[in-house]
């Protein structure tokens, strides 16, 4: 997933992801693999009014963004979708920084160089 937007007033990955999607990703990076039902139970603690539909839509949206992947699991407990992470948090952060710096270098090359060299000092 390449971020297309960076919100300067948001903290952490909420700067590049909508708030609820960011919360789901934070949780998924911890557990790595989960069903939408399990994520719903986790999200419900913080957001008592959240509905299963919201979590399902957001998790599938994260699949479309390439941050999660989905597979069907068959077993005695029935058939269900299992979601897993496609990238670690660290890899994701590296990609975010790379994308932003690439965009800055392309649009404000001199200023970006100047500022980065100042930071080094």
């Amino acid at each position: 997933m390449e971020p297309h937007e960076f919100k300067l007033n948001e903290e952490g990955i909420k700067a590049v992801l909508p708030p609820l999607e960011a919360e789901i990703m934070e949780h998924m990076w911890k557990v790595k693999v989960a069903t939408a039902g399990q994520v719903y139970e986790y999200m419900k603690e913080k957001h008592p009014d959240i509905r299963r539909s919201t979590v399902s839509i957001l998790m599938n949206r994260l699949c479309e963004r390439g941050l999660l992947k989905r597979r069907v699991e068959r077993g005695r407990g029935g058939m269900r979708y299992i979601y897993s992470i496609t990238t670690t948090r660290e890899e994701f952060e590296v990609r975010v920084v790379q994308s932003i710096l690439d965009a800055l270098m392309e649009n404000f090359r001199e200023a970006t160089y100047a500022y980065l060299s100042k930071i080094k000092k």
Partner: peptide
């Protein structure tokens, strides 16, 4: 009711109760 909610959520660009949901599906 739940299926209607699902459809509405998918079709709504921004819903006040669930900020920043812009389903592209």
């Amino acid at each position: 009711e739940e299926l209607k909610y699902y459809e509405d959520l998918r079709e709504t660009v921004k819903v006040s109760g669930v900020p920043s949901i812009e389903p592209s599906i």
